[in-house]
Design a protein around this nucleic acid. Sequence first.
DNA 1: GACACTGTTACGCTGCGTTAACGTAT
DNA 2: GATACGTTAACGCAGCGTAACAGTGT
Lengths: 128, 128
Amino acid sequence: MQIGEVAGRTGLSLRTLRHWDNVGLVKPSARSSGGFRLFSEADVARIQVIKTMKPLALSLEEMREVLELVESASDPTAATRERALRVDYYRDRTRSCISRLERHLAYSIDLLEMLDAQAPSVSPDTSY
Amino acid sequence: MQIGEVAGRTGLSLRTLRHWDNVGLVKPSARSSGGFRLFSEADVARIQVIKTMKPLALSLEEMREVLELVESASDPTAATRERALRVDYYRDRTRSCISRLERHLAYSIDLLEMLDAQAPSVSPDTSY
DNA sequence: GACACTGTTACGCTGCGTTAACGTAT
DNA sequence: GATACGTTAACGCAGCGTAACAGTGT
């Protein structure tokens, strides 16, 4: 699968996919003889997971680590104390992210009410 | 009130406050003879509103416009159709922002569960 | 060779963090 | 004049958007 189709399916830009490749976040599993990036279904799945991680506001590098931790989950040799601590770290960040999102959601609802109070909505079907 | 106290009360950095001044988002209502920025309570209130607008992910310029719309609410001469359309525009963006936050919240909760499944939490009081 | 697609630079942008070097207020 | 606080100017950084220009594939 070439980059265009991946972009279409994931809703990401070509630029973003290339950038993620460059920084090592999602490397296409192959290249054509001419140099075209070739993505597998697994690559696309990884991209989708990354999309769901967006709200965590981690750096691309941190996302890379989280994926590494998750993907090495079934590897018993990787079950070190160090690894457990890293997982704990990201668990904490995820938790505080959730609190943040809840606050932000409440704020946004308040702001919406403020805007509703501003003007009695120009009805969409007559807008213009 | 000088910039330091405002920073302390709002939790923002000096850099941020100066930046917001530079781009015209929050102009301190006075300057000391020596050039120090002097903020009024109204300025601080404005800053707090901006903080709650953060989740909307508007540009600083857009926030400026929203505040302008809100603050000119009581001005009858400003009640043009153009203004109503702008308010509508931001109302839409706020609504889609709310949907986004709800999705993100759901995602984050899923991710938390994924991490919980990863490793059986190293209990904090024994970490190191 | 026409055409859509893809490749690699490389510069631009936002919203600040971060020195650096230098005034202000007490 | 020491000390805490403030000033502007300038570069740095992430995560892309946006050309510009060349190669690929059919």
